[in-house]
Amino acid sequence: MLHKRTPQKIESRAQNFARALQQVFGRGFGPGFWLASFWLFVVAFCALFADWLPVRDPIDPVIANRLNGPFTSNILGADGLGRDILARLVHGARVSVVIGLTAVSIGMIIGGALGVLAGYFRGHFERALMAVLDIILAFPWLVLLLALVAFIGQSLFAISVAIGFLWIPAYARVARANTLSVVQREYVLAAKAMGASTPRILIREVLPNVILPVLAYGLVAMGLVIIVESALAFLGLSVEAPQPTWGGMISEGKRHLATAVHVAVIPSVTMFLTVLSLNFVGDRLRSRFDVRESNL
């Protein structure tokens, strides 16, 4: 009796679990999404726990290991000063994640708020804001960034702020576009009819519907922020040495391209995978929200 029932029961339990998963995460994300999410999880984990992970000291030069290839005494090899690449990647993740999160948050909060206000109030405020944002967008971003970094310094925080500032226009546009479509919905009118004040409408009716697409855009933006940071590092303007960053590692690796390709390639691949995963996950989430919006 028991024997007969067990397999069925297990199956149905598995089915139940699958169904529950589906309910939580929806259908059709596909394995690529989960793979990408897993990679992002690994990166985030490294960034958080870099100090406790069993890796070598990222800034300790061991001359004997200079330009060691992968799978030697250094798992991923060592760089031109004999520093362990794996350790530097793990610690460099911290810089990437911190800059990514801070810059994106700054852009999201300031740009998002401006965009929502512009989309809700329209009129002169919107026109003026959009004009200013267009000017910022039209300015060559690298020049602007260099000027900002020169002005506020090269600390991790300063660089985050500088990159975040660059993201304000993009976020303002995304938030404004979403707000414009939400404001047309009748539930906003209905809230007005019930006597809801403007702040209340903004917070209860508009914001919840704008924030998800904006958040999803944040992941894509984070990928770009990581690339921008590496560009700065390449120019030697990112966080100061010896603090490891992925961009800095690639920049240093270019000196050894002829002899030890891995020094530049490994951080490049890491960054590539991270940016790709961010884009992938961000895109999937965004399309999910878009579909949901249109269903509703």
Binding site: Y187, A190, M194, R204, P208, N209, L296
Partner: peptide, 18 residues
């Protein structure tokens, strides 16, 4: 205005989905 209320054509777009 609370003494006046309104219902709209598209019931789905008149309800906040979130």
């Amino acid at each position: 205005r609370t003494g006046l209320q309104m219902i709209f054509q598209d019931p789905i777009s008149s309800l906040n989905p979130r």
